[in-house]
Amino acid sequence: MAAVTPLMIIKGDATSPQAKGRKVIAHLCNDLGGWGKGFVLAVSRRWPEPERDYRDWHRHRAGNDFGLGAVRLVRVAPDVWVANMVGQRGIRAGSGGPPIRYDAVQRCLTALGDEVQALGASVHMPRIGCGLAGGTWSRVEPLVIGALCARDIAVTVYDHG
């Protein structure tokens, strides 16, 4: 069995990845086309492209793969991409529980692993799904380790100072 690359958790800002080489900043989006709260605000303060691409992807969803479990990488610098990952149903907790959909997060992370390996990049993220999406890190962390770290992909999780 291949060695598992340990998951690193550090204090810092996931929009300023602390690594050399190619980097992918991963975060979760909802399936409604809404972009306006949480980590996406930090992304939009740095780069306009991920929000523009996400809104366009949602607007033309009848003819593309937009939906739970889908991932799109948006290049924002020569060596930096932002991964918009659709891993939450709606934006509010309701009868179906919190917006996070762990099965969709799993599919997103698996697809992300393929993309990241092809790029030869490392992954940088906040504790995805654990803010507005209402998920728990105890359920998300094993998904990240299984889909990325177990494939020898370096992952750094950032806890904001």
Rank of each mutant, 00 (worst) to 15 (best):
G161V: 09
H58I: 08
G69I: 03
A70Y: 03
A19Q: 01
K20M: 07
D56N: 08
S122Q: 06
P126V: 08
L132R: 06
Q88N: 11
V43E: 09
P50R: 11
W81D: 04
M1C: 13
R101S: 07
G120L: 05
E141K: 00
V74G: 07
V43C: 10
G69M: 02
N64E: 06
G63Q: 13
D79N: 05
F39I: 15
R75V: 13
L28T: 11
W81I: 14
K23M: 13
A42V: 08
R45P: 08
W47E: 08
G135Y: 03
V116Y: 00
A121P: 02
L68R: 04
R61W: 03
A77M: 05
R22P: 08
V24A: 04
M125G: 05
R45A: 14
S44I: 10
R151L: 03
C130Q: 04
R107L: 11
I153F: 00
R92D: 12
V86F: 06
R72I: 04
Y54C: 13
G67F: 02
R101D: 15
M1R: 10
P50T: 12
P126G: 12
V40A: 14
V123N: 00
F39M: 11
K23F: 03
W81V: 05
Y102Q: 01
H58L: 10
G161T: 08
P6Q: 05
R151V: 00
N84S: 08
G36C: 09
V40W: 04
R59M: 13
A147N: 03
G90C: 09
R59W: 07
R89Y: 08
P126N: 09
L68K: 05
I128N: 02
T5Y: 01
A147D: 00
S16V: 12
R101G: 06
V4G: 03
H27W: 09
G146A: 13
A93E: 06
A62I: 09
R151T: 01
D79H: 06
A70V: 05
L143E: 01
D53A: 14
W47M: 14
G161Q: 14
D114K: 07
E115G: 06
H160E: 15
G131K: 05
A19G: 14
I9D: 01
L68N: 02
W81H: 06
R22T: 10
E115W: 08
S122F: 00
L119V: 05
G96H: 11
A118Y: 08
W57R: 14
V86L: 10
R55G: 09
D31T: 07
M125T: 09
L68W: 04
E49W: 11
C108N: 01
G87K: 07
V71K: 03
H124P: 07
L68S: 03
G161E: 15
S138P: 02
D79R: 02
A19N: 07
D13F: 08
K20P: 11
P17H: 10
V74D: 07
R22H: 09
H124C: 04
V155G: 00
V74E: 07
N84C: 09
V24D: 03
V157A: 01
D159Y: 09
R45V: 06
Y54E: 12
I91L: 14
L73P: 10
V43A: 10
R139Q: 15
D53V: 15
W47A: 14
G94W: 07
V157P: 01
G97K: 05
W35R: 02
I9W: 00
G67K: 01
C29F: 08
D53F: 12
V140N: 02
D56A: 12
D159F: 10
G161L: 15
S138T: 06
Y158S: 14
V43L: 15
T156H: 00
